[in-house]
């Protein structure tokens, strides 16, 4: 564990807390893409199958349980909570996300490190995580105005990926640890998807103005 990896995990955790805070305090999920949240739930469930087969550390186990349970809870809130679900922007959140699931499943069946159930699921979850933010970014762009907590949620999610890249570079030099190329390529793609968002986020931060994305 190095400082970049820890910062990455913490920004990931903060992003989820910010999202829960938004839903809890405003009793609203406007601006939040259910499609993206469903994809994250699928990502965590398929990636953390090793919870039942391998023990790495208490930290690792706790984080995995937190990620799986929080993502399921968020999906539940948007779909079923009697107040929260009323604010769901259904008409704006039309991304055909199951196509992404299908494409990533095919890719994982073709490109993986080892042909085993767990390894194919792991590769699938890495591919899917890389593109899971797309419905959210499309929703934000369509709605134009982005409220503060939603903007911060996406910002922390992007920061998490950026820290993971620094972590891989650090591990390469300090531990001669080669991060698997599937992770590296997907991680770079995932981070790049945030580039546009980051650009507008920093402009609004610099000007101390509300975050607006161009149509």
């Amino acid at each position: 564990m190095n400082v970049f990896r820890f910062a990455g995990d913490m920004t990931h955790l903060i992003s989820i807390l910010v999202l829960l805070l938004k839903i809890y305090t405003t009793k609203s999920c406007s601006g939040i893409s259910l499609k993206t949240q469903e994809l994250y739930a699928v990502v965590f469930v398929t990636r953390y199958l090793d919870l039942v087969t391998d023990f790495i550390s208490v930290y690792n186990t706790v984080m995995k349980v937190v990620f799986i349970s929080s993502s399921l809870a968020i999906v539940w809130c948007i779909r079923r909570h009697k107040v929260v679900r009323r604010s769901y922007d259904k008409e704006l959140d039309t991304f055909r996300h199951w196509l992404l699931v299908g494409a990533c499943a095919v890719l994982a069946l073709v490109v993986h490190e080892k042909f085993s159930f767990q390894e194919v699921c792991w590769a699938f979850s890495i591919y899917l995580e890389a593109v899971a933010i797309l419905p959210q970014l499309v929703l934000l762009q369509r709605s134009g105005n982005v409220d503060n907590l939603t903007g911060q949620y996406v910002f922390f999610l992007g920061a998490y990926r950026a820290f993971y890249i620094l972590n891989w570079i650090y591990r390469y030099y300090s531990e001669q640890h080669f991060t698997r190329w599937i992770s590296c390529v997907s991680g770079i793609v995932q981070t790049a998807l945030y580039a546009d968002f980051f650009y507008y986020y920093f402009i609004s931060w610099k000007n101390n103005s509300k975050l607006q994305l161009p149509a």
Binding site: R5, R47, D50, N60, K64, F67, Q118, E119, S183
Partner: peptide, 10 residues
């Protein structure tokens, strides 16, 4: 290189 099957990152 593919060293072990354990994924130590989240």
């Amino acid at each position: 290189s593919y060293e072990s099957e354990i994924h130590d990152e989240l």
